[in-house]
Structure formats: structure tokens, C-alpha cells
Design a protein around this nucleic acid. Structure first.
Length: 658
DNA sequence: TTCTAGTCAATAAT
DNA sequence: ATTATTGACTAGAA
């Protein structure tokens, strides 16, 4: 493993003297980080006393230092600090506590709204001076990064080994992908170090030499060594990876997995350190690179790296797969005979008597889902009052309601490719962010449920039987909606006969029975479809007041470069030049047309020393991929899913009814 | 505290 | 047996 790492270190040493820290390119910083990490690792293992006591003990800013910085451009300092933090995935908390002696909240505020120097008191200037010193000290970042791992080993564990939340050890062979620099952590890092090393011509030979098997160190099954140093790799790589075509990567991965009969579970656990479900989502709905946070990019980087040496990696997987199969088989047969052998797993079972009951997941009824979607449409960010109301109406806990809203917002955004604002899920005109009006809510919900039932009826009677005598057990009875009493607006819906729909449109509005937006529009920035429906004009009348106040705070996106959100898309160049390293990204799009496109290759440039900031450089945002395929809807409006005449309901109902 | 992102892990659906 | 969904949790940030 020295090969790569050593090379990197050497390279760093030779070409990255020290001097202009500020001007150091990411590559150089990378190299030096590697370097420092290596050194650290070589030294005595983590001591209980990290060289950094910090915490509240940071008051030493000497008068001299104050004098030294008689005038700082706070904005500039903050900008650079933010760059550093995001680049190396350093949390505000860590930075605040170890560098500034401030809490996360303070750091957030400081970074978000730095006051101009002249408006700061002596005390107020301290943090900025510390930041400035931090920026001026090249090693500071490195130390921080290194300490981050030492301080939070579980972080490494997390990516390092897949160990479900609970029981650590488990019979199901725990595979862990140590995330230390396995010699061939391949493509990315090496390329970088080479470039930095100033071996422009360093040919493929070097690269090739690494590939040849060997990565003896990274064997699965070893438990996190206490000295799990060299935490770099994926994180650092993530920090400097300019851009990856997530769509392409996932497509390729799916192809390979399918062709080789590898399941998501196996792949996820051994290669990505993720569960099957997560892998599924990742592969079927990859988010575009620019919308991913550093953390979120990790799996893609791992996949990319995995693809670099597909054959060998596949081999490894196959091996693991067969191993598993064998062991499970063995275990089974063994169990049959010797009932109680238990060797390892027993410890847990005995020591935990109650934890047995695995909590079952809450399942919402269709009605509840409808209600939630409606409420969401009326107000994606319900306040406490609204949530309380929903709790009552749906007989769900506050926690559950808020969770649902959180999840729904995120998932909706993800699927609409939403670039920015979470607001306009609804046709703007109508009911909007206002407080959720109970009456209106009930009215609309009632209407919605009726439609649903009608649809269901149709579906059920699809064959020949008429929907007439449908067992619409739904409303009134079993439904958890005690309200629905027709009143308000004189809706005659008490009887809920399926036919009433025809005349009940006193307000007009076409009931969208099934409208879905056929063409999705490019999501960027704007509100996606606007098909929404009904009630537009009608509802309005009721709560038409002019006061449109409370607009919730959507909270800023947390991806690496939020500025991109509003960025105009740039032309995608087939090849990018990053710090001298030319990365051919190959096309994208197209997807998997039989012969896969050329493999992305990396070649080293003669080093042109460009700027360190790729800045806005994004590909064409292939977001246009025709979605709609599998399941287009999800909007509160279009209701496609309920199509299966499922006799569910099974309303527990119990005792609500107030 | 609440929001965003990323996941987990129980269930559903294939 | 796999893959897709989705309620709940957990970090980090604001």
C-alpha cells in the first residue's frame, strides 16, 4: 500500500514545499493532507490526549496578534473558511470548538452574516483573527481533518463497516470496507498525486502497476483496528472530485450487477457500506452531482472507483457471495441437529430480554395518506397548530405527522429534481401557505376521498359488475375522520353516494379524476407542473384575505455549492481540466446503449497550473431524463397509486371518534 | 428547535 | 429471492 500513499507523500514533499498556502491548489492541499496523515499514522497511535486540548480554552490571542491584524476583510475570511470547511467536510461544530472556541450555532451565524471589521468590538474580532490565522497556517486544516477522525472514530466506522444500528457483532459475517487507503483506492487519488508530484509523463504504467491485485491489507472481516488511521480517501477524494455523472455511474453499476447476478444487498454492504434499501434508491434515483452534499457523494465515488477495476472487484464479490452461501447452508444444517449450539449470537439474545419485539412500521391508511397529501398541498410547512389539528383528525402522533412532512418534502424535491425552493408544489394561485384552514381542509379532503372511492369502485368493478353496490365501507364508518359532516358550504356529502359528484361542483372545478402532468418540465428552479387542480378559483373565495403572511423558512440547501442552485447551466465540456489533471468525462446521457461509451479516462497533463476553483462548471444537467416512466406522480394532486382495488382499510378505528 | 440530507430497516411489490 | 417504498432516526446547519 505504500506505493500510492508513499508516492503521494513523496510527491507532496517534493513539489509542495510550503510557501504560498493560500495559493495552493486543492491538489497540493490534498497531497499535503495525505502527507500529514501519513506522518501522524506513523507516530504512536492515537493518544488519549490529542495534541489539541482546545475547547473553551482558547483565549490566547495576544495583543501582538491583534496588532498584526489591524484590519481584516471579514467577508473574505469567511468565504475562504467556508470553502475550507466544505472542501474537507469539516463540520461547523468541530471548527467552532477547536479553532474558534465557539459553539456550532455561533459559527453558523458568524459565517452566514459576518459583520464588517469596523463594526466589531475587540471581542467580536477575535473569531475572525482566529480564522485568519487558521487560513494562514497550512497545517491547521490537516490537523483538524486528522483530529476529526480521531475524535469521531464512529464516523469512520460508519463508512468503514456496515454494522446496522444495533447489535455490533452478528452472525451474518460483518463485512467492513475499511476506508483507509487501500493501496488501490485507485483512480482518483493516484491520478491526483501523480499530477501533484510533477510527473507529467508518468504513464499508465504506474497506474497499471497498482491495479494488479494486491490489496492484501484490505481484507474484509477485520474489525476496525484502533489505529484506523489514514482516514482519508473517500472523503478527501470527495472534496476534490470535480464532478461525476451519477446517472452514468448508476447505470453502469446496474448493468454490471445484473449481468453478474449480484444483489443490491451484497453490493451495498460490501462495496458501499449501505443497506439494500439505500442502494436501491441510489441506483434508481441518483441525484445529480451538484445537488449532493459531500456525504452524499461518497457512494458515487465508491461506485466509480469500484468500476475502475470491475473484473477484479467482481471477482471479490463473487467470492464473498459464495462464502456466504456456504456458511449459511452449513449453519442451517448444523442448527437442525444441534438445536442450541449458538456460539456468538447468543450473547445478545440473552442479554436483551425485551428488545425482541422489533417495532413494526406504522402504515398509513389510504385515507390518511390522502389527508396528508392534501394538507401538504395546502401547506408544506405546517406550524404547530396545523400539526396538532392533523394529529386530531388523523389520529396520528405529532412525531409521525412531522416526520411525514419532512419525508414528503424531501422525497418530492428529489423526484422533481427540484432545484431550489420547496414552495410551489401547488398551483400558486390558490390556497397557499396560509394556515391550514380546518374547514377548507375537511371539505377538500372529503371531496378527494370521494373521488378516490369512485376510482376504486371503477377499478374494482372493472370486469362487469357495476360499481353500484360497491361496498364502500370507507367513509363515515371505519374512516378515521369523524368530521365530514357535510355542513360548511352546504356540501351535501353526508350520504356519500358515489354519484353525487356530478352536481356537487358548485364551485366548478373539474375534478381531475386522473390528470397527471404528461410532460414534466425541466425542474430547474421553477415550479414543476402546475396541473393542479381543482378548486383554484373556488376555494379562494373563502380565505381570500389579502394577508399572505407567514412564509416558512425553507432552509438553505446543504449541498456543496449552494450557489449553483441559481446558476445558469454551463456547457458541458466533454473533458475537464482540473488542476492540470485532465479528466475525460465521456459523454453521458444516452445511457446504456448496448456498447457502453468509452470508459472515462484520466490522464495527466503537463501541468498547467490553472486556478484552483473550477467554479461553476456543470454538465448539462441531464435532469431531463424522461421520468414519468415508472411512476410519475406523487404530487398531491394526481393520484395514481390507489389503482389497485385493494381491500385494505382494515381500519383499526378503535376509539377515536371525538 | 426545526429543516435538510442521508440512511436504516420493516414491508410491499415483483 | 430481490428490489422498491417509506416511516423513523441521526447528523449538521441555521
Amino acid at each position: 500500500m505504500h506505493s500510492a500513499a508513499a508516492a503521494a507523500a513523496a510527491a507532496a514533499a517534493s513539489t509542495a514545499p510550503d510557501e504560498l498556502v493560500t495559493a495552493a491548489s486543492p491538489l497540493q492541499r490534498m497531497a499535503s493532507i495525505t502527507n500529514s496523515l501519513m506522518n501522524n499514522a506513523a507516530l504512536p497511535p492515537l493518544q488519549p490526549h490529542p495534541p489539541r486540548p482546545m475547547k473553551a480554552v482558547l483565549p490566547p490571542i495576544t495583543q501582538q496578534q491583534f496588532d498584526q491584524f489591524s484590519n481584516l476583510n471579514t467577508e473574505e475570511v469567511v468565504r475562504r473558511i467556508k470553502e475550507h470547511l466544505s472542501q474537507y467536510s469539516i463540520s461547523q461544530r468541530l471548527f467552532g470548538e477547536s479553532v474558534l472556541g465557539l459553539s456550532q450555532g455561533s459559527v453558523s451565524d458568524l459565517l452566514a452574516r459576518p459583520k464588517p471589521w469596523h463594526m466589531l468590538t475587540q471581542k467580536g474580532r477575535e473569531p475572525f483573527i482566529r480564522m485568519k490565522m487558521f487560513l494562514d497556517d497550512e497545517n491547521a486544516v490537516h490537523k483538524l481533518v486528522a483530529s476529526q477522525y480521531k475524535i469521531a472514530p464512529e464516523k469512520l466506522m460508519r463508512t468503514g463497516c456496515y454494522n446496522g444500528g444495533k447489535r455490533p457483532g452478528f452472525p451474518k459475517m460483518p463485512l467492513k470496507l475499511p476506508d483507509m487507503p487501500k493501496s488501490l483506492e485507485s483512480p482518483l487519488p493516484p491520478a491526483v498525486s501523480l499530477a501533484a508530484g510533477g510527473f507529467p509523463g508518468l504513464p499508465p504504467a504506474a497506474l497499471a502497476s497498482r491495479l494488479p491485485g494486491m490489496d492484501p491489507l484490505m481484507k474484509f472481516g477485520l474489525r476496525m483496528p484502533t489505529a484506523g488511521q489514514l482516514p482519508m480517501s473517500v472523503y478527501e477524494t470527495a472534496a476534490i472530485t470535480p464532478e461525476l455523472d451519477t446517472q452514468y455511474i448508476t447505470t453502469k453499476i446496474k448493468e454490471v450487477l445484473l449481468a453478474n447476478n449480484i444483489g443490491q444487498k451484497l453490493f451495498g454492504e460490501t462495496v458501499l457500506g449501505l443497506s439494500q434499501g439505500s442502494v436501491s434508491e441510489l441506483l434508481s434515483k441518483p441525484k445529480p452531482w451538484h445537488l449532493l452534499s459531500i456525504k452524499g457523494r461518497e457512494p458515487f465515488i465508491r461506485m466509480k472507483m469500484w468500476l475502475e477495476d470491475t473484473p477484479r472487484n467482481l471477482d471479490k464479490l463473487q467470492r464473498i457471495k459464495s462464502d456466504r452461501k456456504e456458511s449459511s447452508k452449513r449453519r442451517r444444517s448444523q442448527m437442525e441437529t444441534a438445536s442450541e449450539s449458538n456460539d456468538s449470537s447468543d450473547v445478545y439474545s440473552t442479554m436483551s430480554n425485551s428488545p425482541n419485539a422489533k417495532k413494526s412500521r406504522v402504515l398509513f391508511s389510504d385515507e390518511q395518506k390522502e389527508a396528508l397529501k392534501l394538507a401538504f398541498a395546502m401547506d408544506p410547512y405546517p406550524n404547530m397548530t396545523s400539526v396538532e389539528f392533523l394529529c386530531q383528525e388523523l389520529n396520528l402522533t405529532h412525531r409521525t405527522i412531522t416526520n411525514w412532512f419532512h419525508n414528503h418534502r424531501m422525497r418530492l424535491k428529489q423526484q422533481t429534481g427540484a432545484a431550489g425552493e420547496p414552495a410551489p408544489y401547488l398551483a400558486a394561485g390558490a390556497r397557499d401557505g396560509q394556515q391550514l384552514d380546518p374547514l377548507q381542509f375537511r371539505l377538500l379532503l372529503n371531496r378527494r376521498l370521494q373521488e378516490l372511492h369512485r376510482e376504486k369502485a371503477v377499478a374494482a368493478g372493472g370486469g362487469g359488475p357495476l360499481p353500484g353496490p360497491l361496498p364502500f365501507a370507507g367513509l363515515t364508518g371505519p374512516l378515521p375522520f369523524p368530521f365530514l359532516d357535510g355542513r360548511l358550504s352546504g356540501e351535501p356529502m353526508s350520504g356519500l353516494d358515489l354519484s353525487m359528484k356530478s352536481d356537487n361542483d358548485f364551485d366548478n372545478q373539474s375534478d381531475d379524476a386522473s390528470n397527471m402532468s404528461g410532460g414534466s418540465s425541466p425542474p430547474p428552479a421553477g415550479s414543476p407542473e402546475g396541473d393542479d387542480d381543482d378548486d383554484e378559483g373556488g376555494e379562494r373565495r373563502q380565505a381570500a384575505p389579502a394577508g399572505r403572511s407567514s412564509r416558512r423558512k425553507p432552509a438553505a440547501p446543504q449541498w456543496v455549492n449552494p450557489q449553483w442552485a441559481a446558476e445558469p447551466r454551463r456547457t458541458p465540456q466533454p473533458q475537464q481540466l482540473i488542476n492540470g489533471v485532465c479528466v475525460m468525462q465521456t459523454e453521458l446521457e444516452g445511457g446504456e446503449a448496448g456498447a457502453e461509451p468509452a470508459q472515462p479516462l484520466v490522464r495527466v497533463e503537463p501541468e498547467s497550473a490553472p486556478e484552483p476553483e473550477p467554479e461553476l462548471k456543470r454538465e448539462p444537467d441531464e435532469a431531463e431524463r424522461e421520468e414519468d416512466g415508472p411512476e410519475p406522480e406523487q404530487e398531491p394532486e394526481p393520484e395514481p397509486e390507489p389503482v389497485k382495488g385493494e381491500p385494505t382499510d382494515a381500519e383499526p378505528d378503535s376509539s377515536e371518534a371525538e
